[in-house]
Every structure is written in C-alpha cells, then in structure tokens.
C-alpha cells in the first residue's frame, strides 16, 4: 500500500488589529482556521454597516490556548511564507443583519476515507483483464461528463462494462468485499441496487479534474466508488495518481478542501472511497502514446437501492432486495 501526501507547510501569521495590536500564531497551511480567517477577513462588514459583531477564535500554543478577535477589527494579515487562499464569497447581502448566531460554528474538515486492496484478482484474472483491454482498444471512446464532452475530463472509456464477462468477474469479487469495504469507509451497510462499472484508459496528457461521483439525490444513487488498476509491465506511463481531497462542511454545504492524499496506481490494486469524496485523476504521461501503455482501470460503483427490504435483519437482509449477480445466485 502506497499513500503519498504532500506535507503541508507551517505558516507564521501576524494579525494586526485597530489600535495597533498584533497577534502572532502558527498554523498549518491546510488548517481550517487559516481558510476561515481569510474568508471572514475578506467578507467582513464594510465600515458603517449595520451588522451583528462577528468573532473568530484561533488556536495558540498548539491548541493549549486560544485568542478571540472581532473580525471587523482586523486591519491586516501577514503570512510567512506567502500563501494563496481561495476564499468563499458571502451567501448574504451586506448591510443586512443576518438571522444567524453572532458566533458561528467553525467549518468542520472531513478527512477522505479510502481503503486499498492489493492482489485484488488472481494472477490469471489480472492478466486476462489486461488482455481484454488490449483486444478492445478500438472500442474505447472519449470520456464525457454527463454525456457531453468536457474540458474537465480527458481519457478514454468503455461504458457498461458490468454487462461483460470480465465485468461480472469483477463484480462478484467486489460483492465478497462489499461489507468490509463499507465498514472500512465508515459507511453503514446499505441496500444494494446494482454495481455499475466502466473501463477507462488514461494515456499521454489525460486527466480528470476534481469532481464528485454522485449527486446523492436520485433514488438509486452511487454510494461507494472502487477503482481497479491494471497495466502492462514494464510500466509505460508515469503519473495518473488518484488524488482524494478532504472536504469542508459549513452549514450543510460541502466543498473541497485544499488538503489531499495521493494514491499511486499499482497494477492489480483496488482503491475504494465514498462517492461524496472529491477526487481527481492527475495527469498521466505516456511517452509512447500507445494505448497498450495506458494506465487502465475499471471504475465500479455500489448503488444504494431506493426500496430496501423492510424485513431486513441485522443489516444483512438488504442483499436480498438488490440485484444479485448470476454468479452468486
């Protein structure tokens, strides 16, 4: 298992307030407090605006102490080294007293949960999967986003892979793992509807910008995503890592955090994560540009059934209400 994360830097911060006071503190660059500080500083009420006073609480001495500052008293913020923070715009019009508490709950950061299973298929199954991808190389089509070409995504795909013999093979193995994967991702066992999958190939310059795999609103939606990697040895590409972003939850809204974990695609490896995780396919470099040298992957999704079995016991009956693949009937 290989998990790679870029180590966040420590940022020295000096906050100047009205009256010439200065506060110094040290935060990691991915700290929620840092983003929160800048967001509130940028969105602080204009001079003379009628608005309830707003405060921000910041940790000092490694969290052993804290200081509380009135946001409208901040004059400047100096950081060493310089940092670039993407701030959120205010959701309410200025000059209006918002119907919110004077001190709002700080945003919550949610770590991206994932699990890695190596040697996912047997030696021959893995080789067979590669042989299939190579034999079907003319069937790959440009990837789309919601059925349309998009600058957000560049790779090749064979849709509806689950209907094929190889798709069934992968689905059967995934079903064996399903309860353990769900538990590892801290996802309560849910009624299964189906397992959807598609085969993708990432070649030179291919990528898929940060996105979510579900809107969570349709009745039978995707809950868990699994990516099974395989490719020819010796490896004909570099890059193509899977980047899983943490997320920030503020008042029911979830947005992508700056912090992330990168997972290297190893052949015959499966990576599973929840569909509520912002993720990105980093650019792949494939000097030969031959599709045979691509980083292949089957991406599969466990769908939740919209109509679970009311007689389900101990979380197990849910299987009976879903579609069970032929292989396990």
């Amino acid at each position: 298992m290989t998990d790679q994360a870029t180590a966040p830097r420590q940022i020295d911060i000096r906050i100047s307030t009205i009256g010439g006071h200065e506060y110094r503190l040290n935060l990691r660059e991915d700290a929620v407090h840092l983003r929160d500080l800048f967001t509130r500083f940028v969105n602080r009420p204009a001079t003379g605006a009628v608005r309830a006073p707003e405060f921000i609480q910041l940790p000092l001495d490694g969290g052993n102490a804290s200081c509380t500052i009135a946001v409208d008293q901040i004059v400047s913020i100096v950081t060493t080294p310089p940092v670039v923070i993407e701030v959120q715009q205010p959701a309410v019009e200025p000059n209006v007293i918002p119907d919110v508490p004077a001190v709002v709950a700080p945003p919550q950061i949610r770590r991206a949960h994932y699990t890695v299973i190596d040697d996912f298929l047997t030696v021959d199954e893995h080789r067979d999967m590669l042989a299939l991808a190579l034999s079907e190389k003319d069937s790959f089509e440009p990837g789309t986003v919601q059925g349309e070409p998009s600058p957000h995504r560049r790779n090749s795909v064979i849709m509806n892979f689950a209907d094929s013999a190889h798709g069934t093979l992968l689905t059967s193995r995934l079903l064996v793992w399903f309860p353990l994967i769900a538990k590892a991702l801290k996802e309560p066992l849910f009624p299964l509807k189906t397992v959807e999958s598609q085969l993708t190939a990432a070649n030179d310059g291919d990528y898929y910008k940060p996105h979510l795999d579900t809107d969570g609103k349709t009745p039978d939606f995707r809950v868990i995503a699994c990516v099974y990697y395989f490719f020819r040895e010796p490896k004909g590409f570099t890059g193509g890592d899977l980047r899983l972003y943490d997320s920030i939850e503020t008042g029911g809204e979830i947005c992508q955090a700056d912090s992330f974990q990168d997972i290297r695609p190893a052949s015959n490896r499966l990576v599973a994560f929840t569909c509520e995780t912002f993720h990105e396919l980093l650019a792949t470099r494939c000097p030969s540009k031959d599709i045979e040298d691509s980083r292949f992957a089957v991406t599969a999704w466990f769908h939740r059934s919209g109509a679970p079995d009311p007689d389900a016991k101990f979380g197990w009956g849910h299987y009976r209400c879903g579609e069970v693949p032929e292989a396990l009937r």
Partner: peptide, 28 residues
C-alpha cells in the same frame, strides 16, 4: 460478520464462516 447463511444466496453452510472470518480479520 456472520456469513451463515450466505448473505447473497441464503445458503446455510458453516464452511463460509472460516473463510469470511479470516478475510475480515486480516483485512482489519
């Protein structure tokens, strides 16, 4: 996890327990 009966097929067979137990133990 209890795999007897098998959660997909409902087959009652004690032999599932060893394999499923080992899988879960070594995964965790």
């Amino acid at each position: 996890f209890d795999w007897n009966p098998h959660p997909y097929t409902q087959d009652v067979y004690a032999g599932y327990q060893t394999t499923a137990g080992v899988l879960e133990w070594l995964f965790n």
